[in-house]
Simulated scan of single mutants.
Amino acid sequence: MATSKGGSRKLLWLMVILVVLSSSAAAAAIYLVLGQRNTTEPAAAQAEVVPERRVPIFVKIDPFTVNLADDAYGSRLLYAGLSLKVGDEETREILEAHMPQVRSRLLMMFSGQQASELTGASSKQRLGDQVLAVLDPPMTDHQPELVIEDVLFTEFIVQ
């Protein structure tokens, strides 16, 4: 009987040692897997980082009709509508708050143009640059700089 008691004790110790070893091995494996996942995730996350897509902000300027400078064909008209692509909400708010001034500046600038200067594609690009130049001076004291990215002609008829 003494041998059976001693044998069962050895068997018990053997089982305890096996449980401790298997638990240690499982813990080490889990640690390695989680450790490896944490080191690869930031690299993968950095590779997958997509630049934040900004929703474009447009300020629509209602279409207007203006008399152009006289040319060989007599009096001509320009019917133009445009939108301004702006870089931030502050610029949008300033332009909308001062829309009468914006329209006045544009009408004055357009009225000095001749019809022959407005009909080509490159002339519209030049006209867009002139629009940017006309809107560049501040409309009020202490006005922050306007961020106007592009001038888009939505309607354009020379008659």
Rank of each mutant, 00 (worst) to 15 (best):
V131C: 03
L107N: 10
V33Q: 09
H142P: 01
Y79Q: 11
S22Q: 10
I148L: 07
Q130M: 12
S83Y: 04
S24C: 10
T119G: 02
R76H: 04
A29H: 11
H142K: 14
Y31N: 10
P144Q: 05
I157K: 11
R103D: 05
A80N: 08
G120I: 08
F110P: 03
S116I: 11
V86T: 01
N67R: 14
T140A: 12
Q130F: 01
L118S: 01
I30E: 05
K5P: 06
S104R: 15
T119D: 03
E89C: 05
A26F: 09
E117Q: 13
H98R: 15
D129E: 14
L32D: 01
E149T: 02
L21A: 10
V66Y: 00
A72E: 12
I57A: 02
S111L: 07
V59S: 04
P56V: 00
P138G: 02
P137V: 05
D141R: 15
M1E: 09
A28K: 14
R9K: 11
I148M: 00
P137G: 03
A80K: 03
N67Q: 12
P100S: 11
R103H: 06
L146D: 00
L118K: 06
T39G: 03
R54M: 10
P42I: 05
V19N: 11
E96H: 00
Q143R: 06
V50R: 13
I57M: 12
R9Q: 08
L32P: 00
E90G: 04
V147T: 10
Q159W: 00
A69Y: 01
A43R: 15
D88T: 05
Q114T: 08
P137Q: 02
V66F: 04
S75M: 08
Q143M: 14
H98V: 06
P144G: 07
E145H: 07
E93I: 12
M99D: 02
S75A: 10
G120Q: 15
A80L: 07
K10S: 10
I148S: 01
Y73I: 04
S4D: 13
L34T: 05
M1V: 09
P100D: 06
R53W: 03
S4P: 10
L82R: 03
T119S: 14
A44N: 12
E48G: 14
K60H: 09
D62I: 02
V131K: 04
V49T: 12
V49W: 08
I94K: 07
M15A: 15
A97W: 06
A80Y: 02
L95R: 08
P56I: 04
E90R: 14
Q101A: 13
V158K: 03
G128W: 02
A27E: 07
A26H: 08
L78K: 07
L68D: 00
E93D: 11
A2C: 09
A97K: 13
A133L: 08
D150F: 06
G120F: 11
M99C: 00
A45T: 05
D70P: 10
E90K: 13
N67T: 06
E149C: 06
Q114F: 07
G7C: 13
L118W: 07
T3Q: 15
G87N: 09
L34V: 07
